[in-house]
């Protein structure tokens, strides 16, 4: 990657900024305990730090959990304290609710939701018949429209996020393992391209923050690597479950760029690329973030 003069200025500014902020944080208790281990309910070990593969752009893989304050981290360590579980319960209700012209519920065909163990860790993935990437949302809506005769759910609204939270939970603790070669290669390359392209009024790319500056502060925010192993995530900011595409959209809006649409090919490709950057970290869904 060619380093531009802008990159150099940005790096120097960020470093200066970091020095100023670093001085002030010495007097306060650690903003985040980056050495803490995540053990859920006292028994489930979640891998929040992993060695990066040789070809990774990162030195090591670090889950977003590690960048949050002690109090926020604590919320995810107990399934009762974790506010996501309100929505998991809603997902469970939806799972057994009959909906659509065919008179079926998810449970009618899929029986126990536990049968979805292992799905989240491999999504998004290439769909041979459509030629596009499938995300968990598209799989859910495909079932609803094609097999249940029901209305599709909106990508990031309550019903969808409750369901994707429930299904993702089934893979909690398993390593992220998305396929980036073969028929997924084109989408992977598109996603990678989007990740490194500067956009918006603030002229920033995902990499500027999440690769060049993770661990640093941007104003009052502690930058993470932008991993998505914990999605859908309960954000303290909006007190609800958030989808991956909703977060991508938010990030793009923050840098004053016109965001791609949720469910668009661009966001699906970006989701694949970003997921692959976390290959090896554990699925943490449903996580708690700021």
């Amino acid at each position: 990657m060619r380093i531009t003069r802008e990159d150099q200025i940005m790096k120097k500014f960020t470093r200066t900024l970091t020095c100023i902020i670093a001085l002030s944080t010495i007097t306060s208790v650690a903003i985040a305990d980056e050495d803490a281990e995540l053990v859920v309910n006292g028994e489930l070990n979640i891998l929040t730090k992993a060695a990066a593969p040789a070809d990774s752009a990162l030195d090591e893989l670090i889950s977003g959990w590690r960048f949050r304050t002690d109090e926020t981290q604590a919320l995810q360590m107990d399934d009762f304290d974790n506010p996501s579980f309100i929505f998991i319960e809603q997902g469970e209700d939806l799972y057994s609710k009959i909906d659509g012209s065919e008179g079926k519920s998810c449970a009618s065909c899929h029986a126990d939701v536990a049968s979805f163990k292992g799905l989240k860790s491999t999504l998004p993935r290439h769909n041979a018949s459509t030629g596009k990437l499938d995300t968990m949302e598209t799989l859910v809506n495909n079932c609803r429209t094609e097999r249940m005769g029901a209305e599709p759910w909106k990508w990031s609204k309550g019903k969808m996020t409750a369901m994707t939270s429930l299904i993702s939970l089934q893979s909690r603790g398993m390593p992220i393992n998305v396929k980036v070669d073969g028929n997924a290669a084109n989408a992977y390359e598109l996603g990678k391209d989007l990740y490194y392209t500067r956009v918006g009024q603030l002229d920033m790319s995902c990499a500027n923050c999440h690769e060049d500056n993770y661990g640093n502060m941007i104003r009052a925010d502690h930058l993470s690597q932008g991993q998505i192993n914990g999605f859908p995530t309960y954000r303290l900011k909006n007190a609800k479950m958030n989808s991956i595409h909703a977060r991508f959209k938010g990030c793009m809006k923050n840098i004053r760029a016109t965001p791609f649409k949720e469910g668009s090919d661009e966001f699906r490709a970006l989701e694949l690329y970003v997921a692959s950057r976390g290959n090896g970290l554990s699925v943490e869904s449903p996580s708690v973030r700021n």
Binding site: I31, L236, N238
Partner: peptide
């Protein structure tokens, strides 16, 4: 209370 609140919306 936390010394620094991660988000003012939800402070334990």
């Amino acid at each position: 209370t936390p010394e620094i609140a991660e988000n003012g919306n939800t402070v334990p």
